[in-house]
Design a protein around this nucleic acid. Structure first.
Length: 423
RNA sequence: GUGGGUGUAGCUCAGUUGGUUAGAGCGUCGGACUGUGGCUCCGAAGGUCGCGGGUUCGAGCCCCGUUACCCACCCCA
């Protein structure tokens, strides 16, 4: 059989997995400070959840979803992102009571059927937060700040990232703007690529994302939503910026920032970085989605959130030379001098573990010398040497691997003594 | 879906104009006087040279196919 992981997936071996857990812990600590609580939603949903939420015309829904029919005839899709599920769950359990809000965070794998390349896999991990029920611009500024602070905290130099923000408008001003952009596209139809021409009907704003130089030139002269925002949206956007200014969060206004999900309204943002990411540049992004609850048949409920990519963040960390703190391995290695004390060694090792000391022993009858090498490799600070001599006296030798000092300790006192020494 | 690149020991790679038993470094395991590590030295294990055809007296090296991975386009985390 083929033992290789499926295309676009990778095994996270201990070294990478440690970095993973480091990122998770960092996020948990940071998010808790802002009042976010964990939520775990299923990794698959009814296909409709994503089709309605993310939008039929988006790349994600139209060509990247892992969709299948289960044995009960249900159409199921592996989640391509986190927000849709969280909002669906919030509706199911009525998490957003009248006048209150829910602040949630999640972490886990997402699935998109794409051709893998650097910084892009079919299964990839995201961690994200969602703030549901709050319409105030201070929440926009808060969410953006959490995202920025996360990257700072994890060790990515601020100078190597940039935060882009924009406003997508709302149901009052966006439709008219959409029409203007569509008109602009049709007007310059001849100079635009096939894809962009199609976008005139499906999703005109995405034409701003086109990397085709000719399209970019033409779209550069298109009307900007910034100039077409209704009064409420303009005021909201301005208030968000005031708060980011207050906090010194260094944003860049990018009027052409559109993002690939249909549910966004008003504030959208994206953190980009270059180092280590291949041709990718987004490491995190999000926005406000004030109409999404209604899309699912719920009452009007504002919300916004972000998601950041674990793999890409890790690539950036590597490029920046960030050292991930190593998890402590064995603190103590219990070595046996001869096989006839094997049972005592086994018992002592377990006693240490029960006392809260990370202890390891040899299970392969290796020579004492090998056991020391093993202890050294594991980073053990102490080796407990169990020989017939010591054990006959009810003692063992404790060697400090750093100082090479050795002392005899009664077996009964080993756990207590080592706990003190390891402080 | 399209294009380009690459597939030789666990890892990183050498392998000369096709020619005998395919190499190195790192790692692993063992050893260097009797119960002791990190350095050094010695030794050992470990390879269907991605897979299948073909050319040839002979192919890891050439040709065809195939597959996997990587990178890029598209789009995004």
């Amino acid at each position: 059989m083929d033992v290789r992981a499926p295309k676009g997936t990778v095994d996270m071996l201990p070294e990478v997995a440690s970095a993973w857990e480091h990122m998770t812990r960092t996020a948990q600590t940071l998010f808790a400070r802002y009042g976010y609580e964990p939520i775990y939603t299923p990794m698959f949903e009814h296909t409709e959840v994503f089709e309605r939420g993310i939008g039929e015309a988006t790349d994600i829904v139209s060509k990247e979803m892992y969709t299948f029919e289960d044995k009960g005839g249900r159409m199921i899709t592996l989640r391509p992102e986190g927000t849709a599920s969280v909002v669906r769950s919030a509706l199911e359990h009525n998490l957003v009571q009248q006048g209150s809000s829910a602040k949630l965070y999640y972490a886990g794998p997402m699935f998109r059927y794409e051709r893998p390349q650097k910084g892009r896999q079919r299964q990839f991990w995201q961690i994200g937060i969602e703030c549901l029920g709050a319409a105030d611009p201070s929440v926009d500024a808060e969410v953006i700040t959490v995202l920025w602070r996360f990257f700072e905290t994890i060790g990515i130099p601020a100078a190597s990232m940039r935060l882009l923000i924009n406003s997508m408008g709302d149901e009052h001003c966006r439709p008219a703007y959409r029409d203007k952009v569509a008109a602009h596209i049709r007007e310059h139809s001849a100079g635009l690529c096939e894809e962009c021409n199609r976008r005139a009907d499906t999703n005109p704003l995405r034409a701003f994302d086109c990397k085709n130089p000719a399209c970019a030139t033409i779209m550069a002269t298109a009307p900007l939503l910034r100039d077409e925002l209704c009064d409420e949206c303009a005021a909201h956007y301005a208030a968000v910026k005031v708060r980011l200014d207050m906090l010194g969060i260094p944003y860049i206004e990018e009027p052409k920032l559109v993002r690939g999900l249909d549910y966004y309204t008003r504030t959208v943002f994206e953190v980009q970085a270059d180092a280590g990411l291949g041709s990718q540049n987004a490491i995190g992004g999000g926005g406000r989605y004030d109409r999404l609850f209604e899309e699912y048949g719920g009452k009007p409920t504002p919300g916004l959130g972000f998601a950041l990519g674990f793999e890409r963040t890790l690539l950036c960390m590597e490029a920046a030379g960030v050292q991930v703190p190593a998890l402590p391995r064995s603190q103590v290695y219990v070595a046996r001098v001869s096989d006839d004390v094997a049972e005592e060694v086994f018992g002592i090792t377990q006693a240490l573990r029960d006392a809260g000391v990370a202890a390891e022993m040899d299970h392969q009858s290796r020579s004492l010398k090998s056991q020391f090498k093993q202890a050294d490799r594991l980073g053990a600070q102490f080796v407990v040497i169990c020989g017939p001599e010591e054990l006959a006296c009810g003692e063992a030798t404790v060697r400090n691997m750093g100082t090479k000092e050795e002392s005899r300790v009664a077996v009964a006192d080993l756990s207590a003594a080592l706990r003190d020494l390891l402080v």
